[in-house]
Amino acid sequence: MKQKKARKGWIATIILTIVAVFYVSPLFVVLMNSFKKKAFINLEPFNLPTARNWIGVENYANSIEKYGFLQAVLWTLVITVGSVVVILVCTSMFAWFITRVNNKATKFLYLLCVFSMVVPFQMVMFTLSLVTDRLRLNTPWGLIVIYLGFGAGLAVFMFCGFVKSIPIEIEEAAMIDGCTPLRTFFSVVLPIMKPTYISVGILETMWIWNDFLLPYLTLDLNKYSTISIVIQRMQGSFGRVDMGAIMASLVLAVIPIIIFYLSCQKYIIKGVAAGAVKG
């Protein structure tokens, strides 16, 4: 019986290994093609690079020099890190307040946040771009404000779920000992909520790093761009599409994600599971 089960397990492993190889193969196809001359990429995408079509790192140089890929990476990083930090600090304070102060106004705010989670972006995209232009929020720094507003729903929702499970006595004790509400929040509540900070941080990072439409519509595209915007622009630009530079950019776009993923894998998977349970 046990032997049979073990053998079954190994058969499953073999099948899953084959599936997993297929699963990651598109990424290797792109990596392979990023070292080929442009003309060969559409002709024979699955052939290994050979001396005939090898071009070395020229595609990468093009992507960085001609299309400003590194600037886009930097701006994406600024927008993502800035927004996530601001979202975490502001929405956790917001969530703690509306959970601990119980009246009609705070209940209404909570419902408003939940409501904003289900509204599709298309509903507000046009008017949002008008608002950001009017208020001159069309810079990466302004975008942080927009992300705080638009990303507040999910974050508040998750933080509220967690605050409810913290025994209020701990906070009361801190207040009796003379802590102001601010001090209570930062030295008592915040450390307890650390796991939720990680979960929310990861979900928001995944969203903002990859977001295309919001920055595309609100950023001043003459001055700033993000990774998704640059790649979309390379493909959509008039004239010849530079497949080589696109391949190199795709590789450069995926590398930071894979590094991030492999280094915080445990938290990412936990964060996703936690987000789902709360949802």
Binding site: L112, V124, L135, I146, L148, G149, A152, F185
Partner: peptide, 16 residues
């Protein structure tokens, strides 16, 4: 506690 998020929420969601 509420100010920053609420303000951003108005700009980024409620008004649009």
């Amino acid at each position: 506690f509420l100010g920053p998020t609420f303000l951003a929420f108005i700009i980024g969601f409620i008004v649009p």
